[in-house]
């Protein structure tokens, strides 16, 4: 009986001490956790702004991660400002904010609907480097970091040749409006790459092209219009993740899965899911993290007066159901 009592006392004492210690640990970590990571307390040398469209796609998240990594490696901090075209605070307005805040450099991801030319020129006039990512402004900016549009078009063309060949009747969904000269320049390069690849299938032809507005729903609208107007269309080439999702949804709704080959863009989870199901034949994936990283490195180099390349190609990867299965959890 005595031994049982002593054992119970020891057990309850251990439980009490253990629970108390664990509770104090939780409390301390909860309190210290509010202070944020230690790096947040350290001042850095450079302060950059990244002006990007408001989006939380895989490409956007990868881009931010790459920028953060590069900032940490470069004794810099990147402050991200997101905009929506047409809003009170659009991309140009944020560029103005960055200039008033006396930033050390701006990473700009241009989007249709906003004219950044003046803002970029104003920054350059103040000696502030501007690096564009995702889409190029061609002129004004310090350098462009991203995918080679010609290479992207060429890869799409190769897939079409291999899968469809001369029978290919191709419809293009081009993201954003193309009235702006800079955008046209990008699309031209994409089309040039595509055409170059299609030389191996002389019968293949681009039969239609549609412009999609920004917004998750507009990709489906454009695809539906393309297919409706072109019954013989058997290939759709997309130039954004949202367009890919919309096109795939349209083909499923029209019960034409397999009959229409979709060449997607980016590696959003929904896109990869369609690739895995075979709805999307292949998707062209940009290396977002590398793009973000190289953008910061380029702007740091420019800030320090070092020579910076006009175009930094971060490459493109073709993801098909075959190589998707080999990747961990289906992501790249």
């Amino acid at each position: 009986m005595k031994r049982v009592l002593i054992a119970l006392i020891a057990l309850s004492a251990v439980v009490f001490v253990g629970v108390t210690t664990y509770s104090v640990f939780l409390l301390v970590t909860a309190t210290s956790g509010q202070k944020g990571p230690a790096r947040a307390e350290t001042a850095v040398r450079l302060h950059f702004f990244a002006v990007m469209p408001h989006a939380d796609g895989r490409y956007d998240l990868g881009l931010r991660k790459g920028m953060d990594n590069a900032a940490a490696d470069s004794d810099a901090a990147v402050e991200v400002l997101t905009y929506r075209p047409g809003d009170q605070y659009d991309g140009a307005w944020f560029m103005d904010l960055a200039l008033r805040a006396k930033t050390d450099g701006i990473i700009l991801m241009p989007q249709e609907g906003t004219d950044f030319s003046k803002a970029v020129d104003a920054a350059r006039a103040k000696g502030i480097p501007v690096v564009t990512v995702g889409r190029d402004l061609v002129h004004h900016r310090t350098c462009f970091v991203g995918t080679n549009s010609f290479q992207a078009g060429y890869e799409a063309g190769r897939i079409i040749v291999r899968r469809v060949g001369d029978r290919a009747r191709i419809g293009l969904i081009i993201a954003g409006e193309t009235e702006k000269p800079d955008q046209q320049w990008n699309q031209n390069f994409t089309l040039a790459g595509l055409s170059n690849a299609l030389k191996e299938a002389p019968g293949a032809r681009v039969v239609a092209a549609g412009l999609s507005r920004d917004g998750i729903l507009f990709g489906e609208e454009t695809a539906d219009e393309l297919v409706g107007k072109n019954p013989g269309l058997n290939v759709i080439v997309c130039t954004s993740g949202k367009d890919t999702i919309g096109a795939a949804q349209t083909i499923i709704d029209l019960n034409r899965v397999g009959a229409v080959t979709i060449i997607g863009y980016d590696d959003d989870p929904e896109v990869l899911a369609f690739v895995r199901k075979g709805v999307v034949s292949a998707t062209l994936v940009r290396n977002a993290e590398k793009t973000g990283y190289e953008a910061v490195r380029a702007i740091v180099a420019a800030r320090e007066g070092k020579p910076v390349s006009d175009f930094i190609d971060t490459g493109i990867t073709v993801v098909t159901p075959g190589n998707l299965a080999g990747t961990r959890d289906g992501s790249l």
């Binding site: 790096r39 307390e41 350290t42 302060h47 900032a71 402050e79 008033r100 805040a101 006396k102």
Partner: peptide, 21 residues
């Protein structure tokens, strides 16, 4: 007033710079 890799710190710095301007 200094650049730090923290959103609030950067916002405060912006506020000080823009406010002073």
């Amino acid at each position: 007033r200094t650049a730090k890799p923290d959103e609030t710190a950067l916002l405060e710095k912006n506020l000080v710079v823009v406010g002073t301007g």
